[in-house]
Nucleic acid binder design. Sequence first.
DNA 1: TCCTTATTGACCGCAACGGTTAATGCAAGT
DNA 2: ACTTGCATTAACCGTTGCGGTCAATAAGGA
Lengths: 203, 203
Amino acid sequence: MNDKFFKLPLEKQRRIINAAYKVFSENSYKKAPMSEIADESGISKALLFHYFTNKKELYMYLWMNAIEMTRKAVTEYKTLETDDFFEMLKRSLLSKCSLMRDYPHLYAFSLRAYYETAPEIHKSIQENFNDVSKASEMIVFEKIDISKFRKDIDIKTMYAEIFYAVDGYMLKKYRLNCIIPDEIEKEIIILIDFWKKVYTQEV
Amino acid sequence: MNDKFFKLPLEKQRRIINAAYKVFSENSYKKAPMSEIADESGISKALLFHYFTNKKELYMYLWMNAIEMTRKAVTEYKTLETDDFFEMLKRSLLSKCSLMRDYPHLYAFSLRAYYETAPEIHKSIQENFNDVSKASEMIVFEKIDISKFRKDIDIKTMYAEIFYAVDGYMLKKYRLNCIIPDEIEKEIIILIDFWKKVYTQEV
DNA sequence: TCCTTATTGACCGCAACGGTTAATGCAAGT
DNA sequence: ACTTGCATTAACCGTTGCGGTCAATAAGGA
């Protein structure tokens, strides 16, 4: 990793790593070509190798960067500073939308990276992530005020179902190549309001 | 396409096309290697080319086969012969589970094929599918008895949400490489019962 | 034994890959 | 105008992987 990369104009940095996020989110690690990343970001392959000395280093930088940015966005939106489940959900997803404005393919990249099987990558990834994800799920279930939910539903099932739906929704958007943050934000809010109405106890 | 393929023992046929479904569901058309399909099905590459004269022909056969099998399973389960939404949903998904027993990667293949962008493939696929999918969604909304739903929810949103969740659920299963029909069947039923309870009007 | 069919290893030509290097362009300093 | 130093690239290298072919072998039945 070459420090000169960080001295580039921010917009150029973004163009490069977005191209990388895109290519790595559409292909497995092994089949994602560096040349495609270079083309997509409008620089030469040689220059790309000048900034990131090899493929693995670029990939690991993207991974670390994704984690760090996600963490930052989550705290910025005060995601965990509420005990209302749907408010927390909204903040969490809106923070991801805001991230999406700058890095449209970061979400898809993270999802894929987590399940990447290439041995050189797999190990480094898993170690790093288990702490984060397990911990945050714990926090959610400790913080949440469950008295607001309908009494006749199973909360774990609801929780799982909601996250399936979010993943399925995003999957469709990516498949349609249709990442428009404003639109997604609107539709996500509709979904959350829908869930809130359905799962909340009527008083 | 060589007719001799159909004279093979059924189990060998299945081994071959399952390998193909798998490889094509994990890679884009362009990056799915015929050699990998041959290896995975335990035959030589030359023999694979002997049965399916080239890559495109194999792919198109898989696509046609997927459509036909899906259609067959749907009618076998009498999916459309009810006006209860959740019953219809259950039959639809269980029919897919039964398909999954013989062809674990057919579902993932179909999903990916529909969004395949390789120009040689794209056109042939889209033509063929639009009729089917659009038509079936129409039928669903015409047949369903909507009086059973809670009055305060938007049915279109519910419909969309449920299908997002199913896709998200299956996505996770595939990502974890965890296609166990019995388990999926059980969990799907739990989800459907959950939805039925949540969305149905209390009387 | 011979004939037919099923199956494959070895091969071909080409494209794509990760990575390198020597040569360019190009702006600032003198 | 000339040099220095850095940003950037075209061209290249050795290797691998690809779709597809073919001559040779294995297998089986009469």
